[in-house]
Amino acid sequence: MKTALPSTELLGSSKIQIQYQRPHVNEMHHISCAEDANEVLRKYIDPAQLDVRECFWVILLTASNRVLGISEVAKGSTLGVQMNPKYIFQLALLTNAVYLIISHTHPSGNLTISRQDIELTKNIKRAARLMEMTLLDHIIITSESFVSFAQEGEL
């Protein structure tokens, strides 16, 4: 029989346990540029959804730019997506990520970086820095192409 921790008994709190096992290093994709990130994302993004609704993704990376995990963190509509940065950082902390790449889709096919996209990117970059992580890029993906904030000087 397991005994409860004193804090659990006294405060009525719950026990939290973190479990994550990274993939074998030989099976992990390596990302060295925006083109690599785009290629890896397209393996996970449903191409049938690219022109239907905006979705937001995060790529979690090791210190040597190997992919720890990729996750869709929000789904929206054709007009936009509401993304809570909290979901990105929950995953980043769970996987012990050092670097992050965020991405979202533009179903319109328009690769223009909006003012809202820039503000969100700045906020995520600032929060990452507080947690000793680095936001490497923000990529907008359409069914035809992509644009990288880092390559455009917007990071």
Rank of each mutant, 00 (worst) to 15 (best):
M1Q: 10
K2W: 11
A4G: 08
A4H: 09
P6V: 07
S7I: 12
T8S: 05
T8P: 02
S13T: 15
S13E: 15
S13P: 11
I16R: 05
I18M: 06
Q19Y: 12
Q19M: 06
Q21Y: 04
R22G: 12
P23L: 03
V25W: 01
N26C: 03
I31F: 02
I31W: 03
C33T: 13
C33Y: 05
C33Q: 12
E39D: 10
L41D: 04
R42C: 08
K43P: 11
K43I: 11
I45M: 07
I45A: 01
Q49K: 09
Q49T: 15
L50E: 12
L50Y: 06
V52Y: 07
V52R: 05
E54W: 02
C55I: 09
F56H: 06
L61E: 13
L61G: 11
L61W: 05
T62S: 12
S64A: 11
L68R: 07
L68V: 13
L68K: 07
I70S: 00
E72W: 00
V73T: 14
S77Y: 10
T78L: 03
L79D: 15
L79N: 15
Y87S: 14
F89K: 04
Q90A: 05
L91Y: 06
A92K: 04
L93W: 03
N96R: 00
A97C: 07
Y99C: 06
L100V: 09
I101F: 02
I101G: 10
H104N: 10
H106S: 09
S108W: 05
G109C: 04
G109W: 03
L111F: 07
L111G: 11
S114P: 13
S114A: 06
S114L: 03
R115I: 14
R115S: 13
D117V: 02
D117E: 05
I118S: 11
L120R: 01
T121Q: 01
T121H: 01
K122A: 09
I124S: 02
K125G: 13
K125P: 13
K125I: 08
A127Y: 05
A128E: 14
R129M: 09
L130V: 14
M131P: 14
M131K: 04
E132R: 02
L136M: 11
D137M: 00
I139D: 10
I140K: 01
I141M: 01
S143M: 02
S143T: 14
S143Q: 12
S145V: 08
F146Q: 09
F149A: 08
A150V: 08
A150G: 08
A150T: 15
E154F: 06
